[in-house]
Amino acid sequence: MKILVFVKQVPDTDDVALDPKTGNLKREGVQSMLNPNDANAVECALQLKEKFGGTVCAISMGPPQASRTLKTVLGMGCDEAYLLSDRAFGGADTLATSYTLSKAAEKIGDYDLLLCGRLATDGDTAQTGPALAAWLGLPQITLASSLAVEDGWVICDRKLGDMRQRVKAKLPAVVTVTGDLNKPRYATAMGLMKAGKKPFFTWDAAAMEADTSKTGMPGSPSSTKGVFEPEKRTTDTKYLSGEMVDIVKELVDSLEAEHLL
């Protein structure tokens, strides 16, 4: 079984700040991490490999420093890593990103299952996985909170609010997974020491025969108009005291006055 798992290096979720002047994300001094849902996808891939054997290829599009994230997932147990890095990929929206990822998938070829995290914590769009399936013409399952492979099918539970939907798709297919799927393992010391010896490929647009009018800025029909922090709402706390009956009356009166009842 050959599994492609798509991972992204994102700023540490607990450590995000916006530049108040430019509205851009402050990246200086901010720690990077493996996107949390992608860690679930990696764990899922490794569990399938443990069950069925095969190869897990990790793919990431990003600047050269994203190689650190790929080495981390190699340390967790992935077999091969592919860093898609080219100035022509810069400024990509989800359409251009998914196109670039699809070209890598085509070049690696021979895949049975493609796994992505449900969304990345920086962009929060949840579009890249589905768009990747579209570019490759593959069936897709999103929001998977369970995943099993049986007789050439992938069977998942989809988490839809308080409802659960069980669906299956014929392999090869794209599945995006949620944090409920599993608890990702940590890389091991031995894994990290051996990560440097595993196959690691860095591909640019030419290496994947990617059409650069579809990558990066030129391939991105959407652009970010602005980023801002929502204004913090001020709360007005009122403490009620006295007899219970009076408190209740005052509370109800206040709520009615605010048209909340």
Binding site: M33, R68, K71, T72, G75, Y186, A187, A189, L192, M193, A195, G196
Partner: peptide, 14 residues
């Protein structure tokens, strides 16, 4: 080294 940093980061996360 990169490996020392990665091991430190792994342990920090853990």
């Amino acid at each position: 080294t990169e490996q020392q940093e990665m091991i430190r980061d792994m342990v920090r996360e853990f």
